[in-house]
C-alpha cells in the first residue's frame, strides 16, 4: 500500500453529545478513491467533515495528510489542503456565478486564472456567468460549487453525495473530474448512495454503519451488497 493520506484509529467525533463517529478505523493511501457506503445517519458525512478538519476528534487518533486531527492548529493547516463538497453549496445568493467563484478562489488562495476554464468546464460559464446564484437551479448550484472546488486544487477531495441533483452529463463530469484529480496525484473520499455509478470509479468500498467502519472491500464489488460482511480488509465486523 502507498503512503497513507488518511489514518484513523478508533476515531470518535461528537456532534453535541451524540457520537456521530464511534470509533472508526480507516486507512486510505495516496491515489485511492474510497467510496463510503452506509445507511442514512451512519456517520458518512461526519467522517468526511472529520477528514476535512471541521468536525472535532473527540477520541481515538487520526492523521490526515500528516496533520494530527487532535490539534486545533494542525486542523486549520489541514483545511487549506483539502476540498470538501458538503450538503451546502456555500454560495452567496446575491452574487453572480463568476463573483462567487472568484471570491472563493481568492479566499482559498487558488489560481485566479483557472476560474474561466473551470466555469466553462462545469457548464456555468458563458451566459450563466453573470446570473445571480439565487436564479440558478439546484443542479447549476452544484456545478458552480464544483467549479470552486476545481479552482481550489485540493490534494484530498472529500465529496458528500456529489451526484445528487445533477443530470446525466453532470454526473459523468463529476466522475471525470475525480478521475483526473486522482491521476494527477490526489486522493478522494466519496460518500454516495449511487453504487452503480461510483463502482467504476472506486478502488475501494468502505462500509460505514453505526458510526464505525464495519467492512472494506479492496476492490469495487460488481454487486450492490449494502450490508456486506465479506472480504475484511482492516475493518472489523461487530
Amino acid at each position: 500500500m502507498t503512503t497513507p493520506v488518511i489514518e484513523l484509529a478508533g476515531a470518535v467525533s461528537l456532534i453535541g453529545r451524540f457520537p456521530a463517529l464511534a470509533g472508526a478505523d480507516l486507512s486510505v493511501g495516496t491515489g485511492e478513491v474510497a467510496l463510503l457506503q452506509g445507511p442514512n445517519g451512519a456517520g458518512k458525512s461526519t467522517l468526511l467533515r472529520l477528514c476535512a478538519g471541521l468536525a472535532p476528534l473527540s477520541g481515538g487518533a487520526g492523521t490526515v495528510l500528516g496533520h494530527d486531527l487532535s490539534d486545533r492548529r494542525e486542523r486549520r493547516a489541514l483545511r487549506r489542503r483539502v476540498g470538501l463538497l458538503g450538503h451546502g453549496t456555500a454560495l452567496y445568493d446575491d452574487l453572480t456565478v463568476e463573483q462567487n467563484v472568484r471570491f472563493w478562489t481568492a479566499a482559498n488562495h487558488g489560481d485566479l486564472s483557472t476560474i474561466e476554464p473551470a466555469m466553462d468546464r462545469l457548464g456555468v460559464g458563458g451566459r450563466l456567468r453573470t446570473v445571480p446564484v439565487s436564479g440558478l437551479s439546484a443542479g447549476q448550484r452544484r456545478r458552480t460549487a464544483m467549479a470552486v472546488l476545481v479552482c481550489r486544487r485540493p490534494v484530498l477531495w472529500l465529496l458528500d453525495e456529489p451526484h445528487a441533483g445533477l443530470d446525466a452529463a453532470g454526473r459523468d463530469l463529476v466522475d471525470e473530474l475525480v478521475h483526473q484529480a486522482v491521476a494527477s496525484g490526489a486522493t478522494a473520499l466519496v460518500a454516495s448512495h449511487e453504487l452503480d455509478r461510483v463502482a467504476g470509479l472506486a478502488t475501494r468500498v468502505v462500509h460505514v454503519v453505526g458510526g464505525h467502519i464495519t467492512a472494506q472491500h479492496s476492490d469495487a464489488p460488481a454487486h450492490g451488497d449494502l450490508g456486506g460482511r465479506g472480504d475484511l480488509d482492516d475493518g472489523e465486523a461487530t
Binding site: 461528537l14 453529545r17 451524540f18 457520537p19 464511534a22 445507511p39 458510526g211 464505525h212 464495519t214 461487530t238
Partner: peptide, 20 residues
C-alpha cells in the same frame, strides 16, 4: 453524568450496525 452517558452512547452507537 454527560461523560458517563457518552460512554454508553458510544456503545449503543456501535451496536446500531448489528440491528440493521
Amino acid at each position: 453524568a454527560d461523560e458517563a452517558g457518552l460512554d454508553v452512547a458510544l456503545r449503543e452507537r456501535r451496536a446500531e450496525g448489528a440491528n440493521v
